[in-house]
Nucleic acid binder design. Sequence first.
DNA 1: TGTGGCATATACCGATTGGTATAGTGAATG
DNA 2: CATTCACTATACCAATCGGTATATGCCACA
Lengths: 194, 194
Amino acid sequence: MADKDIVDNRRNILDTALDLFYAKGYEAVGVQEIATKAGVTKPTLYYYFKSKYGLLENVLEDTIEGFMEALMKAVDEGKGLVYSLETVAKVYIEYIMASRKNMKAFHMFLSMEYSPPDSESHKAIEKYVKDIFVLFLNLFTANAKELGNMNGRQEQFAMGYMGILNYYLLVNKERCDENEIHSLVHQFMHGIFS
Amino acid sequence: MADKDIVDNRRNILDTALDLFYAKGYEAVGVQEIATKAGVTKPTLYYYFKSKYGLLENVLEDTIEGFMEALMKAVDEGKGLVYSLETVAKVYIEYIMASRKNMKAFHMFLSMEYSPPDSESHKAIEKYVKDIFVLFLNLFTANAKELGNMNGRQEQFAMGYMGILNYYLLVNKERCDENEIHSLVHQFMHGIFS
DNA sequence: TGTGGCATATACCGATTGGTATAGTGAATG
DNA sequence: CATTCACTATACCAATCGGTATATGCCACA
């Protein structure tokens, strides 16, 4: 019918793999299942990706790196801590709400971040985790003057903020409210004694 | 030599399974590997546990339920919010530091809490997660008078506190400092503006 | 018309998966 | 002595695992 019946098999494999890795986890999904659901055969999959693990790496590159760029852009604006924290949170929910694909990617990322230390999932994700942690760390050190003497508690602040953000987004998988995020940031900065 | 060369195969299987589930994850570990490392054969494993999933459930019961009891005991003392939050945090690190087995159990638990929604890991853990969340929720509602009008933000508080705690303990897998936990609780209650 | 390379499928590999049918232990009980 | 019971091992099952050798269809270019 249309002049474009051509299918991008590589794209299909990537998207199908994300769906399955998100839903069942990397270790629980077979290569055969991915190929079948993507409408290709196994050799086709192995033509584009050198191994199952290589496929996982490509899925990550295809999804998470866009998120990382947005995150990096949001950090170095130099408009103060409060502004930065809220902007960062906004990047998170905007990314997740932008598409179902992004939502799946983010939660796959989260699940991999907490995955067992000797698993392939963990190995594939660790560099991204490290980058993001450093990014949060820099956010606090860059705004050190606002916080007075942090006494090297930047790491604790970074961990606390990432923990709050991650867990909130884990629990509220489908519906992320921007107002609630704002409230969360406020809580983080001023404590629960409103 | 000793009068007790008898081995408790059920115990060995349980402990070995925990080791492997912790390190590589439930889905990535084979029943054969568990049996071999435990020094038994597969039918012996299936004599004590009806399936691989049944084994996972038993591993959870064997480890996490002790933690849950300690947690429940720590909550309902009615000595105020600050006291409760610190006590709860203390239960976490005391449990983790008590033994290497406990440390593995806790991190397996954490990894399962963030595991993919359609995975067996998720299914096995969800009831415990729900119980713990309710427990945290009650902690805040029980101390409502201290916090003034929470406007139904108990859920947010519970999520925030669990998130901070979990992420801190994930990152500091091996070395959990009680003083740092104290500082973390303080940060949670009064915000990062010291 | 040929030729080379990208992209795809058929059919297969050895190894491992979760799980079991069956037979045997050794110790206690009648 | 015979039976029973808790427990363990040998040997096996079909199915699936990740991965590949080989052949072919197709299209661009010569």
